[in-house]
Design a binder for these strands. Structure first.
Lengths: 111, 111
DNA sequence: CAGCAATATGCCCATGTGGTTATATACCGG
DNA sequence: CCGGTATATAACCACATGGGCATATTGCTG
């Protein structure tokens, strides 16, 4: 598992990070909120921790996880050269997301 | 291949996008610049196009590819809730990247 | 110390994906 | 029309990874 990009390619991991963005949480909380089996949560947290996305604090039997910003900063930095493409027209994203919503993921669409 | 995040998880695809960020390029150009076999470049371009990251223009036998911003905007938008973690201390990224550079990707590092 | 709660690990399997090689297709110049 | 160039597609394989289940570990409480 290499880059920060590969880490956040996993939907459940992104969900975990998004939850931790608002506040730190224990494994059990994440498990309940996301409806993901506990071993799976622990596995993803392990990956996230090894990659530096989160760190844990011990609270009795609980392990409380919180965000570490550095790897996400890295992603943010990579995006920089592309921002010039949209810094102007801000609502293109909205249109794009709308299109994603309706369009069933087509294959082999020629252009 | 689902999310935009999965698409940019691949290093060669990120390299292609980074090259296209500065200007549009033909398949051959990408092949030479990146030292990647041609079928591989075409495959990645196919994935990128299907996911909306690039579009192509025909120039004689050449296909010239250029960036389409929407999927990257999506990634940028996902990052928004995390920005509060680093909008203050800007140089944490630099320290992080330094650490990445020296530290050989260790396994099982406890915290 | 027993027993329970919370979390981490190990193992196995199914699946997806990138690399590679060979081949097909498209377009050009002569 | 031919040969060559540029790109796309197909078929195959090796490998990593996420899910699921069972089990190990750790710490609290009575």
């Amino acid at each position: 598992m290499e880059s920060s990009f590969a880490i956040i390619a996993e939907p459940n991991r992104r969900a975990i990070l998004s939850l931790l963005a608002s506040s730190e949480r224990s494994v059990g909380e994440l498990e309940r909120r996301l409806r993901i089996p506990q071993p799976s949560v622990s596995k993803h947290l392990r990956v996230l921790r090894d990659a530096g996305f989160v760190e844990s604090r011990v609270d009795a039997q609980r392990r409380v996880y919180r965000i570490r910003p550095e790897p996400l900063m890295e992603v943010d930095a990579w995006l920089a050269p592309f921002r010039r493409f949209w810094s102007a027209h801000v609502d293109a994203l909205e249109r794009h997301l709308d299109r994603m919503a309706e369009a069933p993921p087509k294959k082999g669409k020629r252009r």
